[in-house]
Nucleic acid binder design. Structure first.
Lengths: 311, 311
DNA sequence: ATCAGTCCATCACATTTTGTTATTAACATG
DNA sequence: CATGTTAATAACAAAATGTGATGGACTGAT
C-alpha cells in the first residue's frame, strides 16, 4: 500500500491522454487525436498510472489493453473532463453575455417609454439572460447602484453622486401636451408667456427638471397656475387628454401617448431632458452590464437620430 | 470577441487556485490553504482569467473581489474539482480492491464446501465488491478463465491448459463416507480390499480423480461394484447416509455432511485431491483477482493447517 | 526466414508551467 | 506618519510537458 503515497499530482492532461487512449484504443492514435506526439502520451499515461498507484493497461504484443480497473475509472474520468469542458463553455457564454441576471433600476416613465423596446431587444438577443427591472426613487436608485444592489440604472441628469459612473444616454426636448380642443392647440410652438393663466399639469416636484421649469417661469415673470401635480408622464398625459390643462413633459416619454386626442407641441425656450446610464464607480461593470450598456448606446443613439429627424 | 482565441489551456491547478481564492476570500489565504506562496496563486489566477477571457475579480483597495461572472463560474468549477477528487478516491478504492466485480467459476461442490466461507469473508472485508460465482463443466471453466470471460476459478489439478496460470490451493485426502450402520463403520481406515463386494457410490465419471480411484481398484485387482454414480458430493453423501453403499469422496468437500448418520473414514492407499486457483495467462491478474487470490491463499492455508491437524 | 511496417517505451533535450524569493505599490490602521 | 496587509511583478529554479531519435516486440507479406 506504500505505492499510493508517491502520488504524482493529477493533471487534466493525464486525464485527457487516458481518455483518448481508451477511446482510440492506442497511444499513437490518442497522440494524433490530441495533436501531440506518441512519447508525450506514453508519459502522461505513466504519470496517471503513478497517480492511481496501479497499472491501467497491460502491455502485450506491443499493444495497450485497458485493465478492468481502467474501465472502472474511465466513466469517472469522462465526467470530470466533461465538467472541465463545461467550465470553458460557461465561460464562453459569460464572455458573450449570453447568461446571467441583470438588475436594472429606472424611473417608471422611462421604463414604460424608451426603455421598453430596448430591453425587449436585448432579451431577444440574449435569450438566456434574465432581467429584473424596478423603479425606485432617484435617491434610492442612486444608492442601490452605487453599492451594487442593482447592476445599473437610468437616471435623470445631472447626476454627480461620487459612487456612480454616469454615461449620458438620451436627450429629448420639453413639450407641451394638450388636447386638440385647447385654445393653444393650433400653435406650432408654445412660449412661457402663452401659458400665463393656463392650467398647468406638472410632475417631478423637487426634481432638477422641475426646478428648471419653475426657473423659466420665474425669469419670465409668468405666474404658474399648477392645476395638477403628479409623478408619472402617463398620468399627466391622461389629464391633458381630458383638457384639464397643459402638461409640460419630456418629449421622449410622452410620445407614446400622443394621438388624435393629445397633441405634443414644442415648448420655448428649449429645455433639455437628459438621462444617463449609471453603474457603480466602485467596481468595473460586469460583462453583462457592459453588454447591456453597449446595447443601450446603440439603441438610444438610433432613437436619438430618429428623434432629431422629427424636430 | 477576439480575446477568447488566445485561450491558455485550462489546468486543474488554476481551478484549485480559483476555488481557494473564492473560498478564503484572498489570494494570500488561498496560498496558505494550498501550501504554496502568494505569487503562485496570483499567476494561476491570471492564467485562468486568460483562459476564460475576462476578469474574475476586480482589484480594489489591494483586495480581490469576485465579479458576478466569477461567482457564476464557481459552482461549475467546484463540481469539476470534486469530480477530480472522486477520481483519486475511486482509484484508491480500486487500489485497495474495495470496489469492483469479480467473476469466479468453481465446481459446485467446491463452492458449497470450502469456498463458501472464504468468499463470505472476502465479501465482508470488501463491502463494495460484487462477486458472481458460477459452476461450469471443467472444460468450459478452463476456457472461460483463459479468455477472460471469468476473472478466476478453481479447478481440480492437474491442470495444464496453456492459457491458464495455475496456483495450487488446497489438498485433501480421500475418504469413505458411510452410514454408522454399515459393517465397515468401526474401522479406523478402509483399504481397497475391504471394499470388495461392497456397493460403491462414485462421482466425477471421467475426471482425473475418478480415474485414479479406478486405477487403484484395478491395480489391487478388486472388482468395483458401482451401485450409484452421481456428480455432486452432496448427493453421494445423501445416499451413503441411507446406507446404500460406501461413497468415496474428497474429505474437504464431504466434511460438512458428516454427522451422527454419516461417518468419514480414511481410504487407503492415500489419495490426494488437489484444487488450484486459475487465472488467464494472457493478462496480469486484475487487482481485485490478486486480492482475492491472496485472501484465498491465507484462508486455505489456515484451513489446510486445521485439516492436517485432524488427521 | 526475411523484410517492411506498426506499436510502445525510453533517451536526450527544448519549452512551458509552476514554483520560489525579493520587491514594489496601494491601501488600512493606529 | 509609521506599520502591517494585500496583490502584482520580476528574476530565477524546479517540474511538467513537449519533441525527435531510437530500439525492441510484434504483425503480416513476401
Amino acid at each position: 500500500m506504500s505505492e499510493l503515497h508517491a502520488q504524482s499530482p493529477l493533471s487534466l492532461k493525464s486525464l485527457e491522454a487516458f481518455r483518448a487512449i481508451i477511446q482510440t484504443g492506442s497511444a499513437t492514435a490518442a497522440a494524433n487525436a490530441l495533436g501531440v506526439t506518441q512519447p508525450a502520451i506514453s508519459r502522461l499515461l505513466a504519470a496517471f498510472e503513478e497517480h492511481v498507484g496501479f497499472a491501467l493497461f497491460y502491455r502485450e504484443k506491443s499493444r495497450l489493453f485497458p485493465t478492468d480497473e481502467a474501465l472502472a475509472l474511465f466513466k469517472e474520468v469522462e465526467l470530470t473532463l466533461q465538467g472541465a469542458e463545461r467550465i470553458s463553455l460557461l465561460a464562453r457564454n459569460i464572455f458573450n453575455s449570453d447568461l446571467g441576471w441583470l438588475k436594472i433600476v429606472a424611473p417608471n416613465s422611462f421604463i414604460a417609454g424608451p426603455l421598453a423596446d430596448v430591453v425587449a431587444d436585448f432579451l431577444r438577443q440574449h435569450p438566456r439572460v434574465n432581467i429584473s427591472l424596478d423603479t425606485h426613487s432617484p435617491a434610492s436608485a442612486r444608492e442601490m447602484v452605487a453599492h451594487r444592489s442593482a447592476d445599473c440604472g437610468f437616471i435623470q441628469l445631472p447626476e454627480n453622486h461620487p459612487g456612480l459612473r454616469v454615461e449620458p444616454m438620451l436627450r429629448s426636448h420639453t413639450m407641451c401636451a394638450l388636447s386638440p380642443a385647447h385654445p393653444l392647440a393650433t400653435r406650432s410652438y408654445i412660449e412661457v408667456q402663452d401659458l400665463q393663466g393656463e392650467n398647468l399639469i406638472l410632475l417631478g416636484k423637487g426634481r432638477y427638471s422641475r426646478l428648471q421649469i419653475d426657473d423659466i417661469f420665474r425669469q419670465a415673470k409668468v405666474p404658474m397656475k399648477v392645476k395638477l401635480e403628479t409623478h408619472t408622464v402617463a398620468i399627466a398625459c391622461t389629464f391633458a387628454k381630458r383638457n384639464l390643462g397643459v402638461a409640460i413633459v419630456n418629449d421622449m416619454l410622452a410620445r407614446q401617448y400622443a394621438d388624435s386626442n393629445l397633441l405634443l407641441i414644442p415648448f420655448k425656450p428649449t429645455l433639455i431632458y437628459e438621462y444617463g446610464f449609471i453603474t457603480s464607480a466602485h467596481a468595473p461593470m460586469s460583462r453583462l452590464s457592459q453588454a447591456f450598456f453597449e446595447h443601450c448606446q446603440r439603441a438610444f443613439s438610433d432613437m436619438q437620430a430618429d428623434y432629431l429627424a422629427t424636430l
